[in-house]
Every structure is written in C-alpha cells, then in structure tokens.
C-alpha cells in the first residue's frame, strides 16, 4: 500500500514537472501583407512587426541564383496560426515558414504557377491567406492550396 502511495506521489511530481504552460487561443495574423524591399545584403525589415530576415536563401531556392534578390521586393504575411507566407514577382511558389530560434524554417512550398506570379499580393482572409495575382485569386493555408493536394 505504501509503495502504491509513493508511486502515486512520484507520478504527480513527474507530471507537474513536465507540463508546459500554454496560452490559447492566440491569433498571430497580420491584417495586411507587407511589401518589403530587399537590401544589398538580401535582408528585409518589417518595422511595424519588428521582423528582420535574410532572404538570400529564398531567392536561391526559387531561381537557383544567389544574386537574384537584387532590386527585388518580397511580399510577406502571417496567418492566424503564426506561419509566414512569402512570395515575390516571378516566383512560381509561395513559401510557408514557421518561426524558430533566430530563424524562419520552411514549413511548406506551395506551387502556384509554371509561368510565375506577375503581380502577387496576399490578403488576410482568416483562417486563410488569399493569394491574388491580377484578376485571379486563391485561398492558402500553411498546408497548401485550400482544397488542393499540397
């Protein structure tokens, strides 16, 4: 009996020590996309949300060219779950990232068009991110196109 009591107390202690404080629900969505010019070092800075990130890897991934970021601007928005969506003109894909310690880690790469986006823009349409290109639009989540296979 004593042993059972000790085991019970031990389990309580272990459970208490392992539990993580969680605040929910949380909504990370940006009401509006940010259009961020890429500087000479490939860095973009968003003052309103205090985020700064190097996009050289993003452009290399898209164009296979480490200098393709020059003179470009990146469109960025965050959905309610906290995923960052990034794309730019002539990109064939929308990139989805999640924040990690001092970095953005790719969560998904959503293929959009073989011909590349001409004038892409993101709109916040909670719970989706709406991608607009010219007269066309589609809803995205971090998993892919809404209702799509990605």
């Amino acid at each position: 009996m004593k042993q059972l009591i000790f085991l019970f107390l031990f389990l309580i202690l272990i459970t208490a020590a392992c539990s993580v404080l969680t605040l929910q629900p949380a909504n990370f969505s940006w009401p509006l996309e940010s259009v961020l010019p890429v500087d000479d070092n490939g860095k973009v800075t968003e003052d309103r949300y205090s985020i700064e990130v190097n996009t050289v890897g993003l452009f290399f991934e898209e164009f296979q060219d480490s200098l393709s970021f020059k003179g470009k601007e990146v469109r960025m928005i965050r959905d309610n779950q906290g995923f960052y969506f990034m794309t730019a003109s002539n990109f064939k894909n929308v990139y989805v990232f999640k924040a990690d310690e001092g970095k953005l880690v790719q969560e998904n790469k959503i293929f959009i068009s073989e011909f590349g986006l001409q004038t892409p823009a993101f709109n916040q349409r909670d719970p989706y991110i709406e991608l607009v290109d010219g007269t066309n639009k589609m809803n995205l989540t971090h998993k892919g196109v809404e209702g799509g296979s990605k």
């Binding site: 823009a121 290109d133 007269t135 066309n136 589609m138 196109v145 209702g147 799509g148």
Partner: peptide, 27 residues
C-alpha cells in the same frame, strides 16, 4: 494525373473571381 488535377484546381480557383483586389492596394 496529380499534376493535371492540380492544374485544373488552379484554373478553377482563379476563375472563381473575375476581379481581385489586394487589401494593401486599398489601404
């Protein structure tokens, strides 16, 4: 088959709306 169905989906999605406007543009 997957690629074809994906392209169809995109075409469908893009054709839903004739007019699309960026929120940022409005703001």
């Amino acid at each position: 088959y997957l690629i074809k169905s994906f392209l169809l989906l995109i075409t469908f999605c893009f054709s839903i709306s004739i007019f699309a406007q960026s929120d940022r543009e409005i703001v």
